[in-house]
Nucleic acid binder design. Sequence first.
DNA 1: TTGAAAGCGCTAACAA
DNA 2: TTGTTAGCGCTTTCAA
Lengths: 336, 336
Amino acid sequence: MGNNAPKPPVISDVARAAGVSVPTVSRVLNGAAYVSDEKRLKVLQAIEELQFRPSAAARALVQRQPKLIAVIAGNTSQYGYAETIRGVEESARAAGYTVSITVVESADDETVERAVALILEQPIAGLVVLKFDPPGVAALHRLPKSIPTVSVSGVRETGVPQAVLAEADAAEELVGYLLGLGHRTVHHVRVPPSRKEDGRTTGWRRALAAVGADVPEPFDATWEPESGRLIGRELADRSEVTAVFCGNDEIAMGVIRGLAEGGKRVPDDVSVVGFDDHPLARMWSPPLTTVNQDFAELGARAFGMLEGILGGKRVRKFSSERPTLVIRESAAAPRS
Amino acid sequence: MGNNAPKPPVISDVARAAGVSVPTVSRVLNGAAYVSDEKRLKVLQAIEELQFRPSAAARALVQRQPKLIAVIAGNTSQYGYAETIRGVEESARAAGYTVSITVVESADDETVERAVALILEQPIAGLVVLKFDPPGVAALHRLPKSIPTVSVSGVRETGVPQAVLAEADAAEELVGYLLGLGHRTVHHVRVPPSRKEDGRTTGWRRALAAVGADVPEPFDATWEPESGRLIGRELADRSEVTAVFCGNDEIAMGVIRGLAEGGKRVPDDVSVVGFDDHPLARMWSPPLTTVNQDFAELGARAFGMLEGILGGKRVRKFSSERPTLVIRESAAAPRS
DNA sequence: TTGAAAGCGCTAACAA
DNA sequence: TTGTTAGCGCTTTCAA
């Protein structure tokens, strides 16, 4: 079997059916020039009858403005990523663009190169790169400068225009809050950083420095909550830890579970805070103190910048937003 | 400012630079026919120098086989959706395809029509429709049959080829387990169903019928854990409920929180089970008893079927997989 | 208001 | 092994 399907009608079929020339059909398609009502009607009818859909490929070729935006990301199902992508997709769709997603699984040359090549094989109008992690950063470096690009990140950096979340400031505030509760210092479990150090970690360091607190060695988690659980178990055995700042809520949940398995209660024995304000954060026991980040808005903003560039507008280098502290019940004063 | 960027080189630029004809360049590009090593080298050099990338639009136009797969979904960030999309993307990428995502926000005609039109404006090779919910189902109905399509769902249905999860069987097993624990009946909180009734609900009904238990009116949640919390609060006041089967883990977590707010403990006062085996399910307190569904595998399977169709192969109508029960600690025998 | 002609960047057929 | 010639389906001149 296979392709015995009747091949789709093309513009000339419509023209013939309507008894007009091809350019006339094109004109009604684009609503561009004057077409007599009579012919317009005939054309419309023919289109309807034949179920005609103009070929996207041909259009892209001749118009030189594809309606496809490519998003490059290190992963797609992690909360922050998924929400950012949702924001991009939603606003892109409203503006008549489709979005493609390509994940770059690791930062090694071959993987990055393959993913980039794949993307460039598509007729794309522009790119949004989620550079929350090393693969994203690596991909950004491989991209030809000739394609309009916007990046999305948690820290300001020079380069392409960027939609950014002021994570460092928010993290500093959050850790400052913990310190204010009376904790001597705050331990840190970080998620995979985009570079040597990401905004969350920087903010943590700044808060500790501000009060002259000890700066303990951070723990490294992966994106999996399970890695948080393992770290939680370790933490449970360290009697000096009274407060833990986790790189995101999912890791915080894992850490809390690990702590529980190790016999420690939150927030009675140790305070644990997260980051992102995941929808489950407030359902957790205890409800998580965290920082609310509007990733969907971030994605929308990134698309907005890209749209500006595509429209030939002058676009600001940065568009940043400040996350907000959300105090719930997973942090308390240390036991005296 | 805007487009003062030098426009990208095209194949004829390469041909000129390499001192060969355009088709020769095309030949080395596609590795198709014989090209002398000498010319091949020159061409390769020219390509490198000019940073030439063949136009995807032109290729799609002439080859009639675009390398883009469109995924249509009711949402993108919900766990099951996100994972399925990841599975599609991953296997598509391995096969040299890019995937685009379009969300259909509701099932109303206009929304569906707009989304479909957007997708059809792209040069797509095939479609994967996630019909876990009404928007997905509606979209599927609007799609022209001329485009190779595969759907993904929790229940077998005729129509286009389908990758399916045998949710009803798994739900039946899970509810049966609860009944086996000694519960008189099991209440049900369902997530937005794809049609009048989805597999999870059907399985629940079957399990109750099998033992002649009462069939209480199900509760309807949205995709938001918060809706589960609200329902949990209601449930807390109903002393006859001893076991609750939730449509997914996130809702289960919300329900448990609501129950806790209403003074009920899980599983001591009431047993609650979820569905999906979300990565956070085992981190929860208590760890959630649920059903493991391999959505990524489901997505991969869907792409596999699509690839088969595109390759002109004969493809089976269904490809199903049986989820597995995961017993943890959120369910126990009822208090006597 | 309309049609004829040209061309977008590429690949496929056909000679040479 | 290579170049010449034709399109792919559409939009955009340019005349009429």
